[in-house]
């Protein structure tokens, strides 16, 4: 399923619900990724990014403390992380939300509910675009 993906890359999964972190982790594992770390909100994700070399971020939008959009803006504003690929997985599917995420520099977008196949396709699009 992973084709030519570099599955040794490290992925950060950010969601306040452990259920969604597990679902995303399961899809990443199906794709062959094993080096996966998690955070339960944007602030904790930034702490992970300060301390570990991450190659891809998969983040929810609605989270307490710091939401996914603010996390994305922080990632793009930091020279160390500004080119990091970011995929949003979120219940926010309204047009204005999508526009806001694209303006902030998101690489791709998955609206809940989704199938494992849809998430895989979106991830592979990000990997292809970024040469992962």
């Amino acid at each position: 399923m992973s084709g030519s993906l570099d599955v040794k890359k490290k992925v950060l999964v950010v969601d306040d619900f452990s259920t969604m972190r597990k679902i995303v982790r399961n899809v990443l594992k199906q794709l062959g990724f094993e080096d996966i770390v998690e955070a339960d909100n944007g602030a904790n994700a930034l702490a992970v990014l300060r301390n570990e070399k991450i190659d891809l971020v998969v983040t929810d939008w609605n989270m307490p403390q710091m939401d996914g959009l603010e996390l994305l803006e922080n990632i793009r504003a930091n020279d160390m992380t500004k080119n990091l690929p970011v995929l949003m997985v979120t219940a926010e599917g309204m047009k204005e939300s999508v526009i806001a995420a694209v303006k902030a520099g998101v690489d791709n977008y998955v609206v809940k509910p989704f199938t494992a196949e849809t998430l895989s396709e979106k991830l592979e699009q990000v990997f292809k675009k970024r040469g992962i």
């Binding site: 619900f17 259920t19 219940a91 309204m94 809940k112």
Partner: peptide, 12 residues
């Protein structure tokens, strides 16, 4: 999370 997703879809 299910409640979150259902309300998100309905909101859309």
């Amino acid at each position: 999370e299910l409640t979150n997703m259902i309300s998100g879809v309905a909101r859309r």
